[in-house]
Amino acid sequence: MSMVKVAAIQMDSQNDKQENIKKADSMIREAVLKGAELVTLPEYFNFIGEEKEEEENAEYIESGETVVFLKNIAKELNVWLHGGSILEKVDGNEKYYNTTLFINKNGEVVSAYRKIHLYDVEINNGPSHLESKTKNFGTEIVVSDTDFAKIGLTICYDVRFPELFRLQALEGAEIAIVPAEFTLFTGRDHWEVLLRARAIENQLYVIAPGQIGNKPAFQSYGRSMIVDPWGTVIATSSDKESVLISEIDLAYLRGLRKQVPSLSNRRPEVYNITKVGGVKV
């Protein structure tokens, strides 16, 4: 399979989980009606609220209501479904994981990724947020197999860490998915630049479904995007909830990797900080 139609769903999720799931159901169905074979949801698609509300909305990934919903609709619609992210509850741990589930056409969870880089920032005259106050750090890099390509799983703030995407590309990833709740403050200057950079340097497609709207902690930027391996933005959402559809061409990607073989031209044998400083003469 060379041509694959993909969807990035942009949502304004709030603190009503049932309403968010209902909305996601409708938007996933719209995407599939438009021909999408891979549908992606944004970060925290099922719930965004106050910290005090997280306990009652966190879920076990084996049996939570959101997980059951994702598995059922993927199977019903015969579609690959990327579940944005949810708050994952773990027994014996007071903190939660920010977790992505990737589900195949049979409604089976084939991969789970826990966000590695948590959003701990304090920007002058901008948003301050300490995600690690209530969340655990993930520890595993995940590349998931499909029947059309390998896919690297990331979440939001991960996009600022190029080594994660490079390792996924070296493991064969041809698509990276970046579900996000990016802030308006940083999104205006960094969102598109970072997505395009990750696509160019790793020669892969980037699918980035985002949140939009006012949240308890900050205003979300939106502007969900699909970027090709040349760094061209081939689809962008407007500033509203929407279903973004685009066709990606894996034959184009594979041809580009042969023509500009930057991945195979790497020199890992000299990537050693002790050698910085140049040749002595």
Rank of each mutant, 00 (worst) to 15 (best):
K52N: 09
A173D: 01
P127R: 01
W80D: 02
Q18D: 12
E30S: 12
N124T: 14
L130V: 15
L195H: 06
M3R: 14
N265A: 06
R29P: 03
V109L: 04
A36S: 12
G49M: 02
A7C: 08
K52R: 06
V32Y: 07
G231N: 08
K52L: 04
P179M: 03
R198M: 15
K75H: 09
K280P: 08
E192V: 03
P268R: 05
E51C: 01
D189S: 13
E241I: 06
A208G: 14
E54C: 05
Q203R: 08
R266L: 13
F137E: 13
E56C: 04
Y60H: 14
A58M: 05
I155W: 02
L184Q: 14
I73R: 10
L70E: 09
E201G: 01
I116W: 08
Q18Y: 06
N98C: 13
F165E: 00
K135R: 13
T146I: 02
V6Q: 10
D145I: 00
V4L: 13
Q203H: 02
F148G: 01
Y113I: 00
E43K: 02
Y113F: 15
E192A: 14
I234V: 15
G83M: 05
E181I: 01
S246T: 09
I273T: 08
T134F: 13
D145A: 14
G152W: 01
K150V: 01
M11G: 09
G138A: 06
T236E: 15
M11D: 05
R266N: 10
K275L: 12
I21C: 05
E76G: 07
N106C: 07
E54V: 09
T139G: 01
S262A: 09
G172N: 04
V243W: 02
G277A: 08
S246C: 11
D249N: 15
K17W: 01
F148A: 02
L256D: 09
I141R: 13
